[in-house]
Design a protein around this nucleic acid. Sequence first.
RNA 1: GCCGAUUUAGCUUAGCUGGUGGAGCGUGGGACUGUUAAUCCCAAGGUCGUGGGUUCGAGCCCCACAAUCGGCGCCA
Length: 449
Amino acid sequence: MVKDIWIKDVQNGVYDGQEVTLMGWIKRTRGSNKIRFVVLRDSTGTIQCVGKRDVLGDEVFENLKESLIESSVHIHGTVRADERAEGGHELDIDGFTVIGPVDPERPFPITESAMQTEDEEGNIVWGGSEFLLDQRHLYLRTTRSTTMLKLRSSAFGAIHSYFRNHDFIEYQAPNFVAGAVEGGSTLFEVPYFGRQAYLTQSWQLYAEAAMPALERLYTIAPSFRAEKSRTRRHLTEFWHAEMEMAWSSNDDIMKHGEGVVRSIAKTLLDEREEELTLLERDLDTIARYADSPYPRIRYDEAVETLQGMGVDVEWGQDLDYSKEKVLTQDFDVPHFLTHYPKIAKPFYHRMDPDDEKYVLCHDLLAPEGYGEIIGGGERTWSEKEILKRIEEEGTPKEPYQFYIDVRSYGGVPHGGFGLGVDRVVSWLAGATHIREVIPFPRTSRRVTP
RNA sequence: GCCGAUUUAGCUUAGCUGGUGGAGCGUGGGACUGUUAAUCCCAAGGUCGUGGGUUCGAGCCCCACAAUCGGCGCCA
């Protein structure tokens, strides 16, 4: 019983006038004593199927009436174009079989009323109730969720294609690690045969080790951060697209950051126009993200702009979300922020040789209030400089010995970035929360289901 | 880590001044020949998050705890 007929193709008129057997799940039913409408769903779309008592006979018609939402069924019938039906096509049912019934004592729990709630400002929030998060395994079947997951798939595909088309090698780093990339307070601890291990926060350090071997490398892998962040853009387990490139400057890295994000936007337009429309995304806006160059602003300019707007910010502070948000309000495309003060960034960022107060780094900020989606830059690549930076920051040398070794044997200028894939999908999809774009979101308060 | 809020039927929620808890969806029964979240009639379904307190009387007032949501910090 291999399935070879897809609802999308039926709606596209491929089977007009033909007898077919459709396989799927009942999304909704309605009707009268003589006629029954069954909206059938599969992974590709929905179609209204029509059952009439005088065609089916009393017994079959009653069975059809009794089939509840999310029952899996085979429905046999003839395809017909019909303006009255959503999608433009209909199936006249002449027989059907329930494959997996649903017990009326325990009907499918997700009803229309559960799908949307409002936050305190009256904005619609999708799938955010405790109930829907508890029922996540069933929520995945809803149109909203399916749409998001399709966009996500296209985004992953776009990232792989972009890097492979630019001669990057896909490379995997371990997820169990012994030390921190970032500050260290946000590591998940894992018991490891009597020792302490951690879940990785980033692929970067291990990528730098392979950089002299592969020169251009990338990955898409989960990263873990034990941050108790309660925001619409944080997950404790998120999908991190990272790249590392030998013989490159901060500018070279930014070109690829811009390239991959624009390529994701382009791919969504090419592959998922229908889904974007369903989410009421403005296609011209997405096209602008795909086609426009992304401007670059130095940290100093950003701080001056903010100060000019009356925002309380001092030079040397990292720019937190509240400030990013103010900055991005006037943006209609993503912007790079570059050249942060050295004191605001960790040691692996390379100092700007033109002015050692700054480091050669960049963040890419998405518009519409979505904020940071990329963080990257040129690495401190010479042995001499890395030792100096580690000492300046008072970082212990021991855990980073392998990182230093990489520089002791033929270090070269190099750099890379990390892109939050879930954040990018969330932004391009116009999601109300990052958990909308990942099947089973992991946050500080939830590891189930 | 900090701040704010919520918790009433399977779900979404109303509940006035403290005085015997209403509705919509879903489910069950019935009606209806083309519906679009179909419609109409009927029914079942509630120890009002947990524990304590105030009161003649608590869904409502007070305290504690819990779960969840949102915002901030931190970041991708």
